[in-house]
């Protein structure tokens, strides 16, 4: 089987398209590259969706934690403490067991042109259940980051706004929000990188991989088990993840540039991995 054929057969294997059986013997380098790359689709799916959705919850949590009203503050503090204080791995296990216990229900949702049946059974599948866990997890971590940024907004900026009579919503929108994002961004980039790393845990925790559709690490592990040679699949995985990390740094770096576009060059905080703020 030539390499092109392998790519045709296995490039979307992790989504359930193409050949049903995984290669069983005579693994070529091409097999391994294609399948592990195919698994990477899941990592990107989990990472991108969890980050995009988690961003909004994170901002809400940060605002709640900074609020004076204990009715908002206390739940936000507990939310952050629980998700940051316990291992993601245990959270996956716990969530899976919890979702399994839920009664099996289904509701029909009419979207006008098409009818979708929403089932609680979906929660036990990785694509939804694990996504929810990752979403809550990243919301807690980034919520803490945004909260820290919120606390380190220069007091003078806010006082100046007060002096000019800018209060309430305009003050938040024009002064607090952009400054908070700008200050939090380098740390938030780190969070994004480590969230992508965390997505590899999904198929190693409670969530079963259905019909051998797994993520990149799942396939790398499959090859390592079959060939008893870890020196090929794991470096391939490492290669893919370094590429992914570079992409994340590139995209976040562009946003960082835009957030800091009004500042002189030497005041812009460069994005780099800082060990104090890894998750």
């Amino acid at each position: 089987m030539s390499c092109i054929e392998t790519i045709q057969n296995y490039a979307f294997r992790s989504m359930g398209f193409g050949e049903r059986l995984l290669p069983r013997s005579d693994f070529t380098l091409c097999d391994q590259f294609t399948l592990i790359g195919s698994g990477l689709i899941w990592n990107v799916y989990f990472g991108v969706l969890a980050l995009c959705l988690g961003f909004f919850l994170a901002v809400a949590v940060a605002m709640a934690k900074a609020s004076k009203n204990p009715f908002f503050r206390v739940p936000a503090e507990w939310f952050i403490f629980i998700f940051r204080g316990s291992p993601l791995f245990i959270q996956f296990f716990f969530a899976y067991e919890l979702f399994v216990l839920l009664p099996k229900l289904g509701t029909d949702i009419n979207l006008g042109f098409v009818e979708i049946t929403v089932e609680t059974r979906w929660l036990t599948k990785a694509w939804l259940g694990a996504l929810i866990v990752l979403f809550l997890n990243t919301a807690a971590y980034s919520g803490e980051i945004f909260y820290g940024a919120l606390k380190s907004i220069p007091k003078g900026d806010v006082e100046a706004a007060d002096a000019y009579g800018i209060t309430g919503w305009p003050r938040f929108k024009k002064i607090i929000w952009p400054t908070m994002l700008r200050l939090a961004w380098p740390a938030y980039t780190n969070e994004a990188i480590f969230l992508f790393h965390a997505t590899t845990l999904v198929f190693f925790s409670g969530f079963p991989s259905w019909q051998q559709r797994g993520d990149a690490l799942y396939y790398a592990n499959y090859f390592a088990d079959k060939t008893f040679n870890p020196f090929v699949p794991y470096p391939i995985l490492a290669f893919y993840f370094i590429l992914l990390t570079l992409c994340v740094i590139g995209i976040y770096g562009m946003i960082n540039k835009r957030l800091n576009r009004h500042l002189p060059e030497n005041q812009v905080r460069r994005i780099k991995v800082r060990p104090q703020i890894i998750r």
Binding site: L217, L237, F241, V273
Partner: peptide
Amino acid sequence: AIVRGVPDIAFFLFFVIALDQ
């Protein structure tokens, strides 16, 4: 640099076999 750029769980799975071998 390398250990930081790659998911730690991949290292856990890798080193256990690699060290043993």
